[in-house]
Design a protein around this nucleic acid. Sequence first.
DNA 1: GGCGTCACG
DNA 2: ACGTACGTGACGCCT
Length: 892
Amino acid sequence: MDKWMLIDGNSIAYRAFFAMPPLTNSAGLHTNAIFGFTTMLLKLLEEHKPTHVLVAFDAGKVTFRHESYSEYKGGRQKTPPELSEQFPVLKELISAFGIQQYELNGYEADDIIGTLTKQADEQGAEAVVVTGDKDLLQLASDRVTVAVTRKGVSDVDLYTPAAIDEKYGLKPLQIIDLKGLMGDTSDNIPGVPGVGEKTALKLLHEHGSVENVLANLDRLKGKLKERLETHAGDAELSKKLATIYREVPLERSAEDIRYGGYDAAALGEAFRRLEFKSLSERLDLQAEGGASASEAKAAADELSLKAIEAGGDDKEMAELLERLRSGARHGLYIEAIGDNPHHVELLGMAVALEDAVYVLSMEAVKDESAAAFREWLADESARKSGFDMHKAELALHWAGLKLGGAAFDVQLVAYLLDPTEGSQLLSGICERQGVAGPSSDESVYGKGAKFKVPDEETLRRHLALKADAVRRLEPVLTEELERTNMKELYVDLEQPLSRILAGMELQGIQVEKGELERLGAELEDTLTTTISEIYQLAGTEFKINSPKQLGEVLFERLGLKATKKTKTGYSTDAEVLEGLAKEHEIIPHILHYRQLSKLQSTYVEGLLKEVREETGKIHTYYRQTIAATGRLSSQFPNLQNIPIRLEEGRKIRKAFLPSEPGWSILAADYSQIELRVLAHISGDEGLKEAFLHDMDIHTKTAMDVFGVEAGEVDANMRRSAKAVNFGIVYGISAFGLSRNLDITPTEAGKFIEQYFSVFQGVRKFMDDIVAQAKQDGYVTTLLERRRYLPEIKSSNFNLRSFAERTAMNTPIQGSAADIIKLAMVHMDKALRERGLRSRMLLQVHDELVFEVPPDELETMKQLLPEVMSGAAKLDVPLKADVSFGDNWYEAK
DNA sequence: GGCGTCACG
DNA sequence: ACGTACGTGACGCCT
């Protein structure tokens, strides 16, 4: 039977563009969308073996839809130039594939595809529609399947009418009604405000269509009814806009789009120009009967999967161990479910070898027959390749198991290769690297309330695919690390650090619940009186924590003047309130309330919930693959934002203690590390001079900017200079500085100009780094950590400006992060070499916190600042100030 | 789940 | 003319 494949060209190109990391050939042409498109195309051709193929594109800016709604697709971001330049090349490539493409003025690709599926249906052919846009689900029928890309491009979900029914409980055509109610921001289709997918589905399950919903409004009530009444017209219009037109006057016949395979010579040439080496090799291999990308996936599907269960035949276990002990290249995957690794559920693990994947249930791992396997897991000298072994190490620890010898971590390496990639999921990493991978966790487990562990067979297969993906990713990622000069950063810094972090987290920090509870009780008292004062002054009771209600009280009931608004209403943030402080007696009380309630909910109640009953300790989780600059982040709870600036909050730190009697908390923080880094990388003579003489940098800046002597710098001048210094580190703008100092942008601009005329090396650095980012597409830190800034070439002012500030800030913040990470690795080594019992507990970006036995206090007071300042050799000295006490509060 | 707010460096 | 300072995480409210 004939099978037509109809591809929504614009949609897939867009998806590919945003799913792939930036990629250019040596001529400077961006190629990531083309690469993603091609990877997907190859896979689809292999999987579906279509007899007819067509790629449809949108043509022109105006379609018939604009006649009924001129705002259609309005407000949409302009196609980034990095993508537009790829379209002509993509179209050539599609021709080299021997595939027909088609566009028609006044119609969108959807309409062309809709018309063709109708024709396919009439001719009794099957069709598969490929798109990134769920709107096209309306085309599904007995013969038409819609393949929608899932989080990127290389994976698709196949929607038949049955699948649509299962997922949405709707018939394909009702997708139009769904969109009519929900709207679609990306196409500027309004829908009904406040109606999202959930509400829309509920309405449609009950009434079937937009028209029926509107006809039965009397059966609804409240806000929803109101909104549907007000926006009935929008809903009807939106439905109309979402309806695909299936009578496009096409000038193509079925015969025109018959697919006869690609022209190897033309395609080879196109790949060479694009510098798609891996794709080229795959196709060459394919010509010789080797494995193509899609065949690799097929091979993965046919993995030889060996399930190892508790009390089972131990022949396979013996076989696995023998091969692991011989150092066979492998991929290890340990499935830990849950966000907090100190409280996860382990579902099993898998070890992939070249020709087989062994999947072990947790019972099997804990079984007496698996003693040798556990020994291998724990063996520090047995090199392991895995995925997020940091989390795995914690999870296994709490399950009474050890993980040692982590040597290659796919997640950590993927983070280094592109730290801005939101979540480093294995499925996404595979996609970006063009390697066959597992389905997304979400599709296997579901999410949120629907989370469910699947049947054994599905689970085993999922784990097997993950372990196998890890095994196949290792060489690919290693090559990437080398290409980007980050091998050393990984091997000598990030990988060892991940083990140190796990150690700190497992150690935990002692917290005295009694102290928190005392503070909580005090807060409670003050809160109670503050609340009643606020109610009294407002003349009404309301939820002070609700910005909506607070706004109504302040700006409507009390008639204060609203100075700023947010998306949803009045802004009531501290800046606004401080501006109103003199206008009404209630304002200081509200500010006070805010401060106390933050302390109570986040720091007293929040922290109390995190204290482990058995040990009285809090175990945070440092995340090494989140921050785009290379910093760590801390979760469950966040111990990097414990109050310090205001005395009331600072008292929280009294609850953090050493875990052994008589020990001390020792802390050391870098002094002005970011400005010292700036002095180093900019080479600015004035700035270097200041640090070589260990001057107060803000006073020195004030002297130079205001042209006065040290004695003439008053508090206000120093404050301004300090703000300028912050601004410099953040990637200065007159607007930002003006807001911070509460002066006009013009005045701020003068400050900045004055600063740059004194610190000319800094100005040069700022100019150069932006130019370099534009040229290379990325910036780097001291240790070659990389951050891509594709938006630096954007034609959108905001996006571009943001990227420029990031280009200035990331080398500074990121190098500072590199340095303290180095200090952690050096410190860990120093402690072990000297046989010290002191323990590293916390890192707070420029500060390290230890617990120290009394007999080591003197040693540590020397050693710690020494190691920290010696972590990197810069053109200016690094300085660390050390302090200690009986708790974290006292160590100041 | 999105938003506003606020804690830290 | 544009309209933001850089990097994070947690809480309460509201829909």
